[in-house]
């Protein structure tokens, strides 16, 4: 459990970090909370020549309310998000997802930007981020750009970020009134990662779903929004029967992951169960 030798840089600003990335090239890796990268380095599965530690950039750690948007800095920890009054009040779905990550130690160190950029297929945030239709802000030599969540996750540990870009902020539109949301997960008994995680967000209008958002993590090699389930709910009253029938459409036509703990078939089955449970919880909270 001893990593190969590496150089360590601790920039004080985003600009400095970007400069280092440019100078060091592809053999450098960004270090945030270190909860994904360091274990891989200790196993020598990852042997970067240099680490650029963005965890010491004070300007990247914040939670701000900007009108109807919540802006969260990249190195904001899971614990800060889970316990933030403003997140809990305005975007409870995100606080709920943050609170289900790993354990207290992990949540004290791990960061939202690190988790999203790592794009672990079983991470918790991606489902919430997708359901909330958040935007991910990347900064690079060409300046800042905003990536919609739906376009961010490209595949297994792969995102829309360019190698010279830094994820600097997550922007979450605050759900309108009469919305209800829930994140439910079936954790792996050892790792705590989501075997299946489902984020559901319902916005009601006159007792009917004006908008339904359902996103999964853990099921396939990248988190995804399940439009079939969403469509089956839109315009309908979210009663038990409608939700049950919509949930049956979950994870259809996708290729689920399979491992020694849970087969693809089991994951697919769980997706339907957790879609129903998450939607029922979301419906009960929508008022």
């Amino acid at each position: 459990m001893i990593p190969a030798a590496f150089e360590y840089y601790a920039p004080a600003t985003v600009e400095e970090a970007l400069q280092l990335l440019r100078e060091l090239g592809p053999e450098a890796k960004l270090l945030a909370g270190g909860h994904s990268l360091l274990p891989m380095m200790k196993l020598r599965l990852s042997t970067p020549k240099a680490l650029v530690d963005i965890g010491r950039i004070p300007d990247l750690r914040y939670i701000r309310e900007e009108g109807n948007t919540l802006a969260i800095g990249a190195t904001t920890t899971h614990w800060m998000i889970e316990s933030s009054e403003v997140v809990r009040n305005r975007v409870p779905l995100l606080a709920e997802a943050a609170g289900r990550i790993g354990d207290v130690q992990v949540r004290n160190m791990g960061t939202i930007g690190g988790s999203l950029a790592h794009a672990d297929p079983a991470a918790d945030y991606p489902a919430a981020i997708l359901a909330l239709e958040a935007e991910i802000v990347a900064q690079g030599p060409r300046g800042k750009r905003s990536i919609p969540a739906a376009e961010f996750f490209k595949g297994l540990f792969t995102t829309a970020l360019e190698p010279d870009e830094l994820l600097v902020e997550v922007r979450i539109p605050v759900p309108v009134e009469k919305s209800g949301a829930a994140y439910l997960k079936f954790p792996h008994p050892a790792s705590g990662f989501a075997v299946v995680g489902c984020a559901a967000l319902l916005t009601l209008d006159g007792g009917r779903c004006q908008k339904a958002r359902v996103a999964f993590t853990g099921v396939t090699e990248k988190a995804f929004r399940d439009r079939a389930v969403e469509d089956a709910l839109t315009g309908k009253a979210p009663d038990e029967k409608t939700i049950a029938s919509a949930s049956q459409k979950a994870a259809e036509g996708v290729e689920p992951l399979s491992d020694i703990f849970a087969s693809a078939e089991y994951r697919k089955h769980l997706a339907k169960v957790f879609a129903r449970r998450a939607l029922m919880a979301a419906a009960s909270r929508a008022h």
């Binding site: 354990d103 792996h188 008994p189 050892a190 790792s191 990662f193 020694i260 703990f261």
Partner: peptide
């Protein structure tokens, strides 16, 4: 009874080779 098992594949690789694969029960479990 519920969580732990050491699993080898047919090539003799221990697939539950770490604590993130081999489920030692936590207090919450």
């Amino acid at each position: 009874a519920l969580y732990e098992y050491a699993y080898y594949d047919d090539f003799g690789q221990l697939l539950t080779g770490s604590m993130s694969d081999y489920a030692v029960p936590k207090a919450s479990q």
